[in-house]
């Protein structure tokens, strides 16, 4: 498992591996938002938590079609499926590698971009916490979507369509935590619900992902 994780990480960090794609997209979105809505700092402060969450989610979505497709194309996915490691573990490791290369950089970049959007002071820690809790769910759900569409030519659009509604609960609770945190409201309820979604998705979705991957590799 660790070998697989290290392999995925090495591939991602190499040139052309797609590392930084999500991060660059996140940066572009947040930098462009003030140009489109205007530079009033109080307006930006109001929408900052939502924009940062949305940017992180879209950046995550953008990198999903590389998650399994590259391994599918060069045949290593077939090898992984016949390896002694159960497929459930393989997809979990894939999701973890995706989180480390996409989710974690987004989490770390978010506070910096929060400064650009005039995020209120108490919002920073809550934004960090909510993204840290929520992005693993995004990666795991995305892995399921990638496993569903892995065999398809030009599955990218379909992947987005399938994953979009699945992302809704995570986005609602995650952005709610950040929003309430930014205005100093009580955050424990959405935070607990977000944690529940992440825990449930991490625990259960790899089974669904492995099941559809088996069908696709048949």
């Amino acid at each position: 498992m660790i070998a697989l994780l290290l392999r995925d990480l090495r591939l991602a960090f190499r040139a052309g591996g797609g590392f930084g794609l999500g991060l660059a997209f996140f940066l572009i979105v947040t930098v462009l938002v003030p140009f489109s809505v205007g530079p009033q700092s109080d307006l930006l402060a109001t929408i900052a938590p939502g924009v940062l969450w949305l940017g992180a989610l879209l950046a995550c979505l953008l990198s999903l079609d590389r998650l399994l497709a590259l391994d599918w194309e060069d045949g290593s996915l077939d090898l992984l499926a016949t390896a002694p490691l159960p497929l459930e573990a393989t997809v979990s490791v894939k999701a973890l590698a995706h989180w480390i290369t996409t989710g974690l950089p987004l989490v770390l970049a978010a506070p910096v971009l929060g400064v650009l959007l005039n995020l209120p002071g108490p919002g920073f820690s809550w934004l960090l916490v909510s993204l840290l809790l929520g992005t693993p769910a995004l990666s795991v759900i995305g892995t399921f979507g990638a496993a569903l569409t892995v065999g398809l030519k030009r599955g990218g659009l379909l992947l987005s369509l399938l994953v979009l509604p699945l992302y809704v609960p995570t986005l609602i609770f995650g952005a709610e935590v950040a929003r309430r945190g930014a205005v100093g409201m009580e955050t424990s309820t959405p935070l607990l619900l977000l944690a529940g979604i992440t825990a449930g998705a991490v625990a259960l979705l790899p089974f669904a992902s492995a099941a559809v991957l088996r069908v696709n590799l048949r």
Binding site: F144, L148, L162, P165, L166, V168, P169, I172, F173, E176, T189, P190, L193, I197, L205, A208, A211, V212, V215, N216
Partner: peptide, 22 residues
């Protein structure tokens, strides 16, 4: 594939229902 999507989607549809209520 669509059957599995329907199962997973049902769970998330239910979650979304309560999420938007909230």
């Amino acid at each position: 594939l669509t059957s599995v999507l329907c199962l997973v989607g049902s769970v998330f549809a239910l979650l979304s229902r309560y999420a938007v209520n909230f």
